[in-house]
Design a protein around this nucleic acid. Structure first.
Length: 296
DNA sequence: AAACAGGGGTTAA
DNA sequence: TTAACCCCTGTT
C-alpha cells in the first residue's frame, strides 16, 4: 500500500491508508497488548515499541513513533502490504455471500479491520492463556507476564511498558510463581512447558511445512484445535484457517446452518461457504456477531 | 455484605 | 462424552 509519512509533534502522520480502522483492528479479539484511551485512540505494544494510534479525518496519527519505527515495525505488524480490497472482493464471490446478507453486513460493520502479523511465540503463549478465558482477563495476564518477565521498553504517558517475554525468559520460571503473579490459573504449567518446547525445539516451529507446524503446535500443552487455528491465523499469517470458538459456533448455526452442529462439521461447512479466505470471513463474522450478540 | 451465576478451550478420566 | 480446571464480573 502506498502512503505518505510526515512528521508531527511527538510522532508522525500517515496519509493515504485504506482499510485501516484502529478500533476494529484492536477490538476484534486478535490482540491483547493494547488499551483504548478516553479520546478513542489505541496504545499498542509490538516488539520493543509502544505507540498510540488515532484515525482522524482519514489520516492516521501515530504518537511516540518515528518514520523508521513505522517502516520497521508497524508496517509489518499491520500487514500493510495486504490488499483488503482484494480480500473483500474475494469474499463477495463466496457461496456464503450469496446465501444471505450476513457476510455483507459483517464486512460493512467491521470495515477497516485487518488481521495482524504478530510474533509467533507471543501468539502461542497468549492463546494458550485464552483457553476457557475472557478477553479482559487475558489482557491482564499478558500484561502481568510482560511486566514481570519481559525487557523494559520505556515510559509513555506515565506508564511503564515491557516487551512480551522471550522464550528463554519464560521457559525456566517456577510455574507456581507464574501462577501467583500472572493470574493465569490452571494454565500456568502449560505456558511454562510450551515456552520450554519453543526454546529447546525451536526448529519445530520455524521454517517448517504447514503440515509439520500444525502437528507440532497441537502437541504443545494447552494447544487444541481452536488455539492452534488462532496461532496460525494471527501469528503465522495462514488465512486459510477457521478458529471455532463459542461465538463462531453460534453464528454458524444461527446464520448459515439453522441447527446445532458439531465443531468438526462446522469446519467442513466453513470450507464450502467461505473458500480459501475463510480466516478473514471468520474474523469479520466473529466481530460482527460478538458486538451485536448474534446467536445469544 | 456475602453468595452465586455466567463465561470459556483443553485435557484426563 | 463429560467433568474439572480458575478468576473476574455482574447480579441477587
Amino acid at each position: 500500500m502506498n502512503y505518505l509519512i510526515s512528521d508531527i509533534e511527538n510522532g508522525i502522520k500517515v496519509s493515504g491508508l485504506r482499510d485501516f480502522c484502529p478500533e476494529h483492528i484492536f477490538e476484534c479479539g486478535q490482540a491483547f497488548r493494547w488499551e483504548r484511551t478516553e479520546e478513542g485512540s489505541y496504545i499498542a505494544v509490538a516488539k520493543d515499541k509502544v505507540a498510540e494510534f488515532l484515525m482522524k479525518d482519514g489520516e492516521l496519527y501515530v504518537f511516540n513513533a518515528t518514520k523508521e519505527d513505522f517502516e520497521e515495525v508497524w508496517h509489518d505488524y499491520f500487514n500493510l502490504d495486504t490488499d483488503y480490497q482484494e480480500i473483500k472482493d474475494n469474499l463477495k464471490k463466496t457461496l456464503a455471500y450469496s446465501k444471505n446478507d450476513s457476510l455483507k453486513e459483517a464486512i460493512e460493520f467491521g470495515n477497516g479491520l485487518r488481521i495482524l502479523n504478530q510474533d509467533h511465540f507471543e501468539m502461542i503463549i497468549s492463546f494458550i492463556i485464552s483457553a476457557n478465558n475472557q478477553i479482559p482477563r487475558i489482557k491482564k495476564s499478558v500484561e502481568l507476564l510482560s511486566q514481570t518477565y519481559g525487557d523494559f521498553i520505556g515510559v509513555y504517558k506515565g506508564k511503564k511498558y515491557h516487551r512480551f517475554p522471550s522464550p528463554a525468559q519464560l521457559a525456566y520460571q517456577d510455574p507456581e510463581e507464574v501462577k501467583e503473579i500472572t493470574r493465569v490459573g490452571f494454565r500456568h504449567t502449560r505456558i511454562v512447558e510450551a515456552a520450554r518446547s519453543y526454546l529447546e525445539e525451536n526448529d519445530k516451529f520455524e521454517n517448517v511445512s504447514l503440515e509439520e507446524l500444525k502437528n507440532n503446535l497441537i502437541a504443545l500443552p494447552g494447544v487444541g484445535p481452536k488455539v492452534m487455528d488462532c496461532i496460525l491465523l494471527f501469528g503465522y499469517g495462514i488465512e486459510d484457517t477457521f478458529p471455532v470458538d463459542v461465538w463462531v459456533k453460534r453464528l454458524m448455526e444461527t446464520l448459515y446452518l439453522d441447527q446445532p452442529i458439531p465443531n468438526k462439521k462446522i469446519l467442513e461447512e466453513a470450507g464450502i461457504l467461505f473458500g480459501d479466505y475463510k480466516g478473514h470471513a471468520q474474523q469479520y463474522l466473529f466481530y460482527y456477531a460478538r458486538e451485536n450478540a448474534i446467536g445469544k
